[in-house]
């Protein structure tokens, strides 16, 4: 087991290094000139020189990379090229709690929809209920999350005026306030994701229900409820763990878009604004952060799987 963990950790570290190299060098290919954009009117040659020197763009690219990379290892991601030139790490740390709140609430919404839906579909196979869940899953997968976000705003914010259409309040200012701002975005992101989980739970439940131990449980005279919740569901959830890795990618991609609809200044909004402003350091930092979370979540999934299924450790 230890050997397996070491191997996976080294692998993940190498992937992260490669990601850092890729993120750094690819952005050097950007066609636009950020110096020209930044100086807008006051583009005197002296000002240009000074700025290039301040950003270290006069040094060889390898030196720039080394400086950037050692900085990254110390948590220094450079400074934004815009506004008050805030440190990128600072901007990302401000954005992170919002995106995390949103991702967790979306995950919660997805599970709350998916678990009952998946169980009902499996226990009522080939009935109207099963067909309904299947249709819901298809709709959830086919609906763009930003469109669902717009529909929710039209219904709950513009017409019924029950919930705010934009903004974010931290949970420290009250759970209810926090929830009011985040519930619509969370539904917009969580619905598509719930479709994926519901399908997985259905098919893995169907397999589990055929298992010998379910027959044993039935012959012991256990109630349907106990059989389903205590015996079938925990076993059916094992393959669902694999979606945790996919989950992260989906939740983050969802957040990137949906934050922009609801004007929540999370990672997604920071990333898109960074792109619009050609703010290299911010875009680099955001992509690096998202990718490292992704690598980390894949690593955790692999390790969890190795704990559950010992065969994986030796392959």
């Amino acid at each position: 087991m230890l050997a397996y963990i070491t191997r996976r950790l080294v692998g993940a570290a190498l992937v992260m290094l490669a990601v850092a190299i890729l993120v750094f060098f690819m952005i050097r290919l950007v066609p636009g000139d950020p110096i020209a954009v930044m100086l807008a009117d006051s583009g005197s040659p002296e000002a240009r020189e000074a700025l290039i020197r301040r950003l270290g763009l006069d040094q060889p690219v390898i030196m720039q990379f080394w400086k950037w990379f050692t900085g990254v290892l110390h948590g220094d991601l450079g400074a934004s090229l815009y506004g008050s030139n805030q440190p990128v790490a600072h901007i990302l740390m401000n954005a992170l709690p919002k995106t995390m709140s949103l991702a967790m609430l979306s995950f919660f919404v997805a599970v709350v929809i998916a678990v009952p839906a998946g169980i009902i579909a499996a226990t009522h196979k080939n009935t109207a209920a099963d067909a309904g869940v299947s249709l819901f899953a298809f709709l959830g997968l086919s609906m763009p999350d930003f469109w669902l976000a717009i529909l929710l705003i039209i219904i709950f914010a513009a017409n019924l005026q029950w919930l705010p259409a934009i903004g974010y309040t931290p949970i420290s200012e009250g759970f209810w306030e926090w929830l009011q701002h985040l519930i619509l975005p969370a539904i917009a992101i969580g619905t598509g994701f719930s479709a994926i989980i519901a399908r997985m739970i259905r098919s893995s439940m169907l397999e589990v229900l055929q298992a010998d131990y379910m027959r044993t449980a039935a012959s012991k005279g256990l109630t349907q409820r106990v059989m389903l919740l205590r015996h079938a569901l925990p076993n059916a959830m094992i393959p669902v763990i694999t979606v945790v890795g996919i989950a992260f990618a989906l939740l983050i991609s969802g957040a990137v878009v949906v934050e922009n609809v609801f004007s929540i200044k999370g990672l997604g909004r920071v990333l898109i604004q960074g792109i619009q402003n050609r703010d290299y350091p911010v875009v680099q930092g955001a992509v690096l952060l998202v990718s490292s979370f992704f690598v980390l979540s894949n690593l955790i999934v692999d390790l969890l799987y190795a704990v559950i299924d010992p065969r994986i450790r030796y392959s």
């Binding site: 992260m16 990618a249 990137v256």
Partner: peptide
Amino acid sequence: IDLQWAFPNFIIAVYLVAVFG
């Protein structure tokens, strides 16, 4: 291909469009 796995698909697309316009 493993390296590409390290990025969510959507982030790859966003990043490429950001870089190449």
